[in-house]
Design a protein around this nucleic acid. Sequence first.
DNA 1: GATCGTGTGGAAAGCGGTTACGTTGTAACC
DNA 2: GGTTACAACGTAACCGCTTTCCACACGATC
Lengths: 325, 325
Amino acid sequence: MATLKDVAKETGLTVSTVSRVLNNRGYISEETRQRVYSAMKKLNYQPNEVARSLSKQTTNTIGVIVPHIRHPYFAELISNLENEAYQRQYKILLFNSQEKNEREWEYLEMCSSNRVAGIILCSGTVGVEEFQGLNVPLITIERNLENGTAAVECDNYQGGMLAAKHLIEKGCQHLIHFSGVRETAMPADARALGFRKVCEDGGIDFKDMATSAAQYNHLEYHEAIELVLRENPETDGIFASSDFIAAQILQVCYRMKIRVPEQIKIVGFDDVNIASLTTPQITTIHQPIKEMAKISVELLIDAQAGNIVPSRTMLPVSLVVRETT
Amino acid sequence: MATLKDVAKETGLTVSTVSRVLNNRGYISEETRQRVYSAMKKLNYQPNEVARSLSKQTTNTIGVIVPHIRHPYFAELISNLENEAYQRQYKILLFNSQEKNEREWEYLEMCSSNRVAGIILCSGTVGVEEFQGLNVPLITIERNLENGTAAVECDNYQGGMLAAKHLIEKGCQHLIHFSGVRETAMPADARALGFRKVCEDGGIDFKDMATSAAQYNHLEYHEAIELVLRENPETDGIFASSDFIAAQILQVCYRMKIRVPEQIKIVGFDDVNIASLTTPQITTIHQPIKEMAKISVELLIDAQAGNIVPSRTMLPVSLVVRETT
DNA sequence: GATCGTGTGGAAAGCGGTTACGTTGTAACC
DNA sequence: GGTTACAACGTAACCGCTTTCCACACGATC
């Protein structure tokens, strides 16, 4: 591939001059500029970003680590992150930790080795480690981490409250909440708290069912759901911690001949595409994923520039009523 | 961050020696090796991949370009690609072209600038361009491209045949196929051909409905589906080009009070998570995504090494019977 | 005419590694 | 004793680009 040197040779200038027109800095005569441009075109010159990064001591790359890619929530999140990064001339290095602790560690080190501009660490249930030695901004999304640069989350507590209120308003008396994984503390846990608060205040019967890590890892909840429904036949309202779970609840209900929303009403969480692809479509708590992605990228770039950024940002959620309630 | 030079200074050796132990090449005494290791640990040394890449004139990064990320098929594909890459110490740079021609171009150039090891270009309906000037292997998945290094696809024709046969066996007489986008020729078009062949051979009535690019871009087909069903009330079997479309057909049927599979039977394509999250679950043509991802990555690395690789690889599909037929 | 600012471009030192080649010490061999 | 081979490590060029410092020409200024 053509290099700066080639372009310099072609134009009879030196690399420093060519570099200058490439970066638009310093004084360059219009004629020289044109000469360089046409030489670049002629040689099909593509600046070597690797060399550039080495020289500038920084890259335009953001490391994104998620626990799952195939999970619609993360797919949606990644999609938005990529888009926001693109708008700002950044690229995404994508890593899928698969909920494995070692793998997450490895990825963090890879990010570091690759001198990413910063890291966006999403959710995930692995233990809160000492992420020291990381010299780059670390933004977390929906995840607790003591020594991160900044955390972005949605108002999970409010989300739990909205779900409970809605189910109660719709006449439910016996509620169940399928919550997240119990092992690790996560911001999403607040959903259960908000839900509980409203139930208690309203004197409504409720139960909280935590899913296991194994289930989360395989994204498979059918069995557990069926068991819970059999053991709690009086249930008439369910709040699921994700639309993904809600969709599976819907399937189990169908199999058990429980009509939704007539016999049981369901509220999901996230509001990702799956919520509107099921039949009936899922009433859910909308998580502002697009905004969360935008803010995360902005915080990262801001932190990279050496600025002080808010250590915690919380965004509001909202109820989207569809057909399961 | 600590550099090789720091480690060298710490140990009293030169960078070349340190580099040698880092890369395990040449003769190094065991004592020196240990001295270097402990110095690295002490200084928390992380090799700078950027510098390494520049020096080696190649990276361990694979550029992946997809038209959608939120689409379950691509999410699944990306997930598998990432995993296969990880096994081989490669990283994924992810780009979402959003079906935009310019953006795809831009991404190809970014890949080139970043000196990726190779590019995996997935599906996408943008025109077949002259991707010259690209000095890296270009692997396509489910996409026609004249000057790519290698193409990987599943046996779409066979898939279409399987779907038609299955529907006919189940007693359907009036079939409809919701196919892909018509504008650009894609391997997936063969699904329609296989489907047509079986219908014609069996003397079964059928129609082929191509979706528009606009619909594909927004992943929204409800209206079109409803229109088609209204205009073709005799329809009793549908073959959808993706599970994503099949899920929407399911919804439209529900709204129109058409019972599935009693009145209309549906077969999807891809076999991604959405197919088993709907109610009823979707009978579909299984696409061996995992294997396609594996082969793509292998081909890419092989081509990067300068080897000649098969220019076209086709993998078999299979029918997965669930509840919509 | 000496001084100065301004526009233009060259020279060279990094950035942090890799690697071909050179040097030295030591043991084995005829 | 001299040659040879090999182990162990150093020297220095190079990867492609950025950036600081310098050099020079030219017109304006005092």
